[in-house]
Nucleic acid binder design. Sequence first.
DNA 1: CTTGACAGCTAACACTGTTAGCCATATGTT
DNA 2: AACATATGGCTAACAGTGTTAGCTGTCAAG
Lengths: 182, 182
Amino acid sequence: MTDRAQQIMAAARELLDTEGPDALSMRRIAERVGIRAPSLYKHFPDKAAVEAALQAQGMTQLAQELEAAEAGIGAEPPLLALARAYRRHALANPHLYRITHTRPLARTALPDGLEDRAAMPLVRAARGDIDIARSLWAFAHGMVVLELDGRFPPGADLDAAWRTSCEAFAHAIHDTTRGDTA
Amino acid sequence: MTDRAQQIMAAARELLDTEGPDALSMRRIAERVGIRAPSLYKHFPDKAAVEAALQAQGMTQLAQELEAAEAGIGAEPPLLALARAYRRHALANPHLYRITHTRPLARTALPDGLEDRAAMPLVRAARGDIDIARSLWAFAHGMVVLELDGRFPPGADLDAAWRTSCEAFAHAIHDTTRGDTA
DNA sequence: CTTGACAGCTAACACTGTTAGCCATATGTT
DNA sequence: AACATATGGCTAACAGTGTTAGCTGTCAAG
């Protein structure tokens, strides 16, 4: 990535973080860089390419934070620690999370293996059970997007919901590990 | 709702279902009704109001289908039946589901009690445990939007993930009902 | 010295939601 | 019967969107 391209990405990211996805227009990005909108097309084929690069940022950051949560040796159950990290990332970067995870993923524009890397912490937490790993992901993603969209009632105790489900999934993991059939 | 307003909603719904949310422009809607775009504003204050009415349709339809699944006395575990109905609704009406459930809800434009009505089947399935009900909702919503966005790997066995999680939640429900503390 | 690539620019197109203002029709009211 | 008003169409226009075509200056390589 050339210097200019990096400047453009930095401007796009700032705009997204501070003013949300609606403010992310080619003219606004260009303005922040100090050039005109059509000049952006010398560095990116179209707006989708800029958004794809933002998705790559979002994926990378999530992967890093999940890995950090895995490494952090706490008294907490590992599932809960992971869940907390997931939620913290989404709430701290709501617009980035949305652009990254609530639309089709621009896989061709993604660094090799990044998608798997982001998924691995959940797979490890599920002790390799892919069905549980996917369920955990769906649950965490669902909780987070519903919270971001203000879909839960105002006073809802979301911590309790996270806790309850993490326990339920933890039981399921141990059951299948021991070979129990429901 | 006046006749014209209903015509407009029908046109909007058709447009949404057949061509997706990007095709849902005021000019396209008006064209389908046989009038010009500015005339729409004699019937709806703005585009957001049309979308809010679509959200009401989406909520109503989901509530009806969940209630039907509850009433259908099958050999299946009730949680699985409900989950199946939820997924079927979303996959059969992907654009409507997205517009209804993946953005802030226009609550003031919603019929009284509709939001609660749509939530009740899940609450009943969770035997009144609100944390589990919310978790079930988050899980189902997460599964469905990830599937709609093509986020799962091509060959992923999503049925298995649904089944595994429904069982896990079912266990959690019976445990708490019996008063067990994990 | 010249050629070519690079990176900026302006002007423009087709589209978006939305507003202002005009006009015909239909419905009451005096 | 005549007048007033509300209703629901219309055109023209504005500010914004992504994007393309085509021009220009700069700078490095042959």
